[in-house]
Design a protein around this nucleic acid. Structure first.
Lengths: 112, 112
DNA sequence: AATTAATGCAACCTTTAGGTTGCATTAATT
DNA sequence: AATTAATGCAACCTAAAGGTTGCATTAATT
């Protein structure tokens, strides 16, 4: 369960959770109290965020404290930066697109 | 159909399309030839990317040329930057999270 | 020891996402 | 004028996303 960071930040509730956690680690219940969805819904978001590496969970007694790990967002900033770079003088762009698309497809097949 | 940028870049094929378009404007068919999915699948991705403002389409004859508009990615970089900023000395963070979550919910209701 | 709090798991539901195929339309070519 | 190329639309399918409720488990409290 090695979820994609882009996918992880696509959901507005998950972004809000990350924003909330920016003020410091909180346990699952504390987080879920902040949002108008059930605890389970938040729990699932946290599971996905953990899988994507955007948060880290430390158990302490019966509580599980979630802490935001912003490093993983570098993948996103870097993608944006690369896109912004002048495209010229880079190796054949269309070949790259094709390669990426192919690996996307084979990933999908492997999942199923 | 005013699609969210975070949502738009969540899909790997759409990211690859943007990467491909970084080398210059291309028409719909040219784009779809680069990827192992049907023309219609690509067409839908393009429609969504257009809705999110990430690409712009200019018609010329029977062709529609798609051009990438990177400005809209600022929303993403800014969100990341804000998250990275020290959270201290900002107004009550939990209230903000709550507000955001509420507006998310009411948006969902308005859609349905 | 009994109760309460914090969490996890399972089953289920509904909507959306991503994809397909077939047909229609309009602009360019021959 | 007939053909071909580029695109759009509609109907449909399947899987994943986001959500819910109910029950089980384990740690802390009283």
């Amino acid at each position: 369960m090695n979820s994609d960071v882009f996918q992880a930040i696509a959901d507005p509730t998950r972004r809000a959770i990350l924003g909330y956690l920016a003020s410091g680690p909180r346990n699952v219940n504390a987080i879920s109290r902040q949002f108008p969805v059930s605890r389970m819904a938040v729990y699932k978001h946290i599971k996905l965020l953990t899988a994507s590496g955007l948060i880290e969970v430390r158990q302490r007694g019966r509580e599980r404290f979630c802490e935001v790990r912003l490093e993983r967002l570098a993948e996103v900033s870097e993608w944006i930066d690369q896109l912004r770079e002048p495209w010229i003088a880079r190796p054949n762009q269309s070949d790259i697109a094709l390669q990426e698309a192919k690996s996307i497809r084979s990933n999908r097949k492997n999942k199923a």
